[in-house]
């Protein structure tokens, strides 16, 4: 499949999944996972860094518009888009492993898991910290970050298994 088509389709599916389904699952107020990040994770590694940054910015902005959290996802997704190439560069020495779409199949499960965990943690930390700007109970934010990250990582790995 054409790389463009594949990424746009993945984007639309993840956007609908996030906005229509996952945003409606509010478990005990501490679990609001964000599978949407998978789109940024699965972008082609060959993408120029400036393009990746802009993609992250726009993707975050769109999600913000849907969620009425203007600025939050924009900042978090831009951060993910900035860090991802650095992570991939550091963790993947073997350039042959860099296929069009990073997955556990191409990178190896452990490497993929590490990248996923770090990026999801970065995204969720930024996201919940920015949402909590007006709140003061930091321990609730911490629980939110941990629980939501675990659920998001689980969902992303599940979707990765489906792709195999």
């Amino acid at each position: 499949m054409n790389l463009w088509v594949e990424n746009i389709l993945r984007y639309l599916i993840l956007l609908l999944l996030q906005v229509l389904l996952i945003n409606n699952l509010q478990l005990l107020g501490v679990c609001s996972p964000c599978v949407y990040v998978l789109f940024l994770l699965a972008l082609p590694p060959t993408l120029p860094r400036w393009a990746e940054l802009l993609t992250g910015f726009v993707a975050g902005l769109v999600l913000d518009i849907f969620c009425n959290t203007l600025g939050v996802q924009t900042a978090a997704c831009t951060m993910v888009a900035y860090i991802r190439p650095l992570l991939i560069k550091n963790m993947v020495q073997d350039n042959e492993r860099l296929t069009d779409t990073p997955s556990s199949k191409s990178l190896g499960f452990i490497t993929y898991l590490k990248i996923v965990v770090i990026l999801v943690l970065v995204h969720h930390t930024a996201m919940f910290a920015l949402i909590a700007f007006s709140f003061h109970n930091w321990w609730l934010t911490l629980i939110q970050i941990i629980v939501s990250s675990i659920v998001t990582i689980g969902l992303i790995l599940g979707l990765d298994l489906l792709r195999r």
Partner: peptide, 26 residues
């Protein structure tokens, strides 16, 4: 990166303090 993050923060802060725009909301 810093420029985009700055824009994001400006959006965040303005969104909280001003009337939100109809285009940039749900």
């Amino acid at each position: 990166f810093l420029l985009l993050e700055t824009v994001a923060f400006i959006l965040l802060v303005r969104h909280n303090s001003y009337q939100q725009s109809a285009v940039l909301s749900s």
